Computed example of a mutant assay.
Amino acid sequence: MTPIENVPTTNLVAIVILSRGKCGLSKCVTRYLVGMAAADLLVVISQPLLMWTAWIYFPQSFLFITPVCSLARWLIFASTAASVWLTVAFTVDRFVAICCEKLKTKYCTERTAAVVIGTVSVLAFLETVPWGFTSEPLVIIDGVPWYCVLTSSYKYSSSWVVFEMFHRIFTPCVPFFLILLFNILTARRILVASRARRRLRGQKSGENDKDREMENRRKSIVLLFSITGSFILLWVTRLVFYIYQRISMNFVYYSVMHPVYIVEETSGMLHIISSCTNTCIYALTQSKFREDLKNAVIYPLNWILKLIQRI
């Protein structure tokens, strides 16, 4: 299996481990992380598996009947929008938890997280519905439309240009801005609180032992910044390419060695990679997640060894 094809397994492992609720995270945070992992899993299923892998191994399959591949194209945009906006929702939740003491008890709850995740997902899927109508058949064989190519109206119609500009601003330009804004405000609050807490502890006892509260805040901010930071870095190339493509009106490349084609495929690869980095981040920043992951790997090995010994 290629690294891209291994991504679904990675996300499934993250969903299973997080759903057990034994990673030392609050139920609210766990809900967001599971929601983000599920959206990322859907991104990987819709793009690398339904499109890329199918194109290589099953080029004549039903997946390339025009209505089916149009549906797959819509699913790519819908799942991507859901993944992006769930990252924003998680960022806002951590901002409220750290910076808004009065609102924290009402907003940072498992029920609110479930409502936010459901609402964001539904809105993301509705906002991307028009993408399912941007394709037309390449050929018609025995009355059956095959393959999907961009319609001429999509390429040159001012209505589609306006829609695409709205979509690109809505996802991911606005999320970029919101994530940076809330991260800066959250970091500022933590720095101010840390200085005040250190002064207070120094005045009270002069102790140098570790402050458990500040240690928990540090872990929370490392997790937040790692997730949102990787999202921004891996999406920048894709965003720049979107802007270039619309300005140049260049949608077709006649060689796989064309520099712009290479940039397009690279940006797509980075976009897909962003759907599997969160699991690596959990493993690097959360000791209990690492412990559960280790147990998940060791358990089947132990079971196989016991089975061999009995034989």
Rank of each mutant, 00 (worst) to 15 (best):
V84R: 00
M257C: 09
Y32R: 07
Y242M: 01
V129D: 08
T2H: 02
I247R: 09
I117D: 09
K102R: 07
L185F: 13
V120F: 06
S79E: 07
S194W: 06
L18K: 15
Y147C: 10
N11Y: 09
G143F: 09
Y282W: 04
Y147L: 13
Y154P: 06
Y261H: 10
A113G: 02
P48H: 06
F170A: 14
R246A: 09
K204P: 12
A283L: 02
T151M: 02
D211T: 03
F176N: 04
K22A: 01
F163T: 04
S153C: 11
H258C: 12
V129T: 10
L126M: 10
G229K: 02
F231M: 03
V34C: 09
V222E: 00
K306Y: 14
T134C: 14
R197G: 05
S226T: 04
L71K: 06
G143D: 13
F95A: 13
T186K: 06
T80R: 02
L33K: 10
C173V: 15
S19I: 07
A82C: 06
V222K: 00
R195K: 05
L284G: 02
W131M: 11
R201I: 10
V129K: 07
G132E: 14
S152K: 12
N183E: 05
P175D: 01
N295K: 09
S83G: 08
N302H: 07
G202Y: 15
V43P: 12
F241K: 00
W85C: 09
C276S: 15
I273C: 11
T91Q: 00
R73W: 13
I243L: 02
I184Q: 07
L86W: 03
V256F: 02
L103S: 14
A193E: 09
V222L: 03
S274A: 01
H258D: 12
A39S: 11
I221S: 08
L86D: 03
A81F: 13
V13L: 15
E164N: 10
C23M: 03
V139G: 09
T109P: 10
G132N: 13
N208T: 07
F177Q: 09
F95H: 11
S220M: 05
E207G: 05
R217Y: 02
G24N: 00
A187I: 14
Y156K: 03
W235K: 02
A72F: 01
G206W: 15
